[in-house]
Design a protein around this nucleic acid. Sequence first.
DNA 1: TCACATCATTCTGTCGACAATCAGAGGATA
DNA 2: TATCCTCTGATTGTCGACAGAATGATGTGA
Lengths: 235, 235
Amino acid sequence: MSARAALVNADEAWEPVSDSVLSRLSEAILSGDLKPGTKISEPEVSKRYGISRAPLREAIRRLEERNLVSRIPRQGARVVVLSPARIEQIFVIREAIEGMAAREAAARITDAEVAALKASLERQREASRETGSLAYPFKSLDTDYHSAIVHASRNEFLVKFLCEDYYALVELCRRQQRRRPERVHRSLIEHGQIVEALAQRDPDLSEMLMRRHVAAARKDVLAHLDPHPPKEKKK
Amino acid sequence: MSARAALVNADEAWEPVSDSVLSRLSEAILSGDLKPGTKISEPEVSKRYGISRAPLREAIRRLEERNLVSRIPRQGARVVVLSPARIEQIFVIREAIEGMAAREAAARITDAEVAALKASLERQREASRETGSLAYPFKSLDTDYHSAIVHASRNEFLVKFLCEDYYALVELCRRQQRRRPERVHRSLIEHGQIVEALAQRDPDLSEMLMRRHVAAARKDVLAHLDPHPPKEKKK
DNA sequence: TCACATCATTCTGTCGACAATCAGAGGATA
DNA sequence: TATCCTCTGATTGTCGACAGAATGATGTGA
């Protein structure tokens, strides 16, 4: 069995070209290298990356699935433009989904996961103290924290939705905001409350606190949008 | 301008091959023609439909986006198998998303839309009386009803999620259930309550009632699963 | 100067083909 | 007889190419 498993998928390191292209394009969009509204020309990108158009088209379609680009038939794909209205809509969905994830997690989370969450929270507090909440690593810790709660829900569709489909889009929203130490501080308090509710296995409270947390983040992002958002590019 | 618009997209009836294939495959899965677990062979399907593999692969990717098939690299795509656990997970997401849609709709719905909803509800009642709730048209009316509420939320991501990404999957869940007149009757009452809450522009009540409605449907589906679900097929 | 029609270029959607890999049949061995 | 290995056919991922449509530039007329 193990010998057979070794034969199947012998090339463990193999990865579809479309996957690596997807990663590179995602990074380019998140980093602002590809600005909102930019047209993604298939011949150009395929030449630049040295691949054919087949895997590139697959990658673009998956970017569309993740709402990072929008396609119009016979006209190609463009990087999504995040208007304030759209950012609000995305946070509304997040509130519903993450709230439900917290509710489900409260009923299923293990003691070990609660302990891990508390440890994660402590790392966030440390990072916050050390760097004044401005450093990049905090974002990663925040993502880990939310991801852990979603996984504790034991709902594969919730996981897929938040960790795959909407992960990059939420990150893109976040990057349109200036860093605000006050919000980070407040956020840490809310994280602590949520962990406490989860530890008590209280579904109602967990959901309510998570929804308030996301709603607060929404208001903060919308109230402090980067005054110099990347402009659309026609070309 | 209108002249130019007429030139652009002159062939108004044109549709990508991948779209029509997507429709045909979706229908085949929903109708049970393609049973859960069935492998979707690209050469076979492309030959059967008389198309090349390129648009077929695009269609399969979109089926994956809608969770109707699952793909494994280098092994192909298989029709999703809806275990009771998965059905429950799908309804959990629906509860969160449709609940939020109802909340948002309560704040944005127009008088005309409320009137249309009430009319739709009346049609459902009539269909229920005439056919004893067993006829197919009721399903369509129910879909229209939920769709109208989602659209009233004015949230394009909510609309895309419910009306595109998850629509077929929910429909697939529904078809694993025997028809139950009692549930249909109860469902009509709940629909009426929701419309009333929307008409009063009460976000809290609208969301709560919609969540209860979806949760009730979930319990009903799980409690009365078709005892003869379509079996997986290896070949 | 502005609006419109015409045309060349570029791009998207689709097609057929090839190499590497996977699943299953069949035989060899204990 | 059961388990493992080998081999063969079929399938997936990727590639290059072509036809029709869209974009933008050019030219024409009021």
